[in-house]
Nucleic acid binder design. Sequence first.
DNA 1: CGTGTAAGGAATTCTGACACG
DNA 2: CGTGTAAGGAATTCTGACACG
Lengths: 112, 112
Amino acid sequence: MPHINGKDGVSLAVSTSYKNKKVIGIGITSELTGLSERQIRYYEERKLIQPDRSKGGTRKYSFEDVERLVDIANKMEDGMQTFEIRKEEMKQSDVRNKMLRGQLNAAFKMRK
Amino acid sequence: MPHINGKDGVSLAVSTSYKNKKVIGIGITSELTGLSERQIRYYEERKLIQPDRSKGGTRKYSFEDVERLVDIANKMEDGMQTFEIRKEEMKQSDVRNKMLRGQLNAAFKMRK
DNA sequence: CGTGTAAGGAATTCTGACACG
DNA sequence: CGTGTAAGGAATTCTGACACG
């Protein structure tokens, strides 16, 4: 089970459904997103996505990754640059983590 | 959008979420199910599952297929033979279709 | 019947580079 | 900066067959 560890020592189990399983090859991912394999690999190089790797080294994406890629594609169309998208994505997950941590702290305090 | 067509002329849209998308290669499917690729291909030969094919001919499975394979694996362990499993699976989907058709008819009649 | 395996070939994917702009 | 492409190689998958039982 994957966990997010807060610096306060509190850990949070994250749901790992079909959506988050990295099982899709780059070919299918390309079909699903409409992006070329070249584009997908480049966005990885620019740290916008992080697929898993098989033992042999082939990339594996999740449906969540596919969604993120479509989102990235839209932002690219809007003239946004990869580093801007990266910042935005990181900001998003940062917000999400803070929200989760906040709720956790709140719940924890209530138990005392 | 995929549809099921009843002989009564009524058609039913089927939800096509992540679970039903055939996007997983046989290697990952093997890992997810614990079955060998040989076993998976054999169960296909015996009509227990029907993966999609890429243009090049490689098999693509859905998470639903993965679940079905695990189910098949359990039945095989119980000494069931492939033709028995096939019958059971067909009976299941038959029941499911009848239930759906029944509900559809009921809903349709209420509108008159 | 169900499954392992070696065999030869085709499809898929990988990396690093050159190109254009 | 973002993306296409040709290049050479490695990883993945395919089929038909032989084997065992």
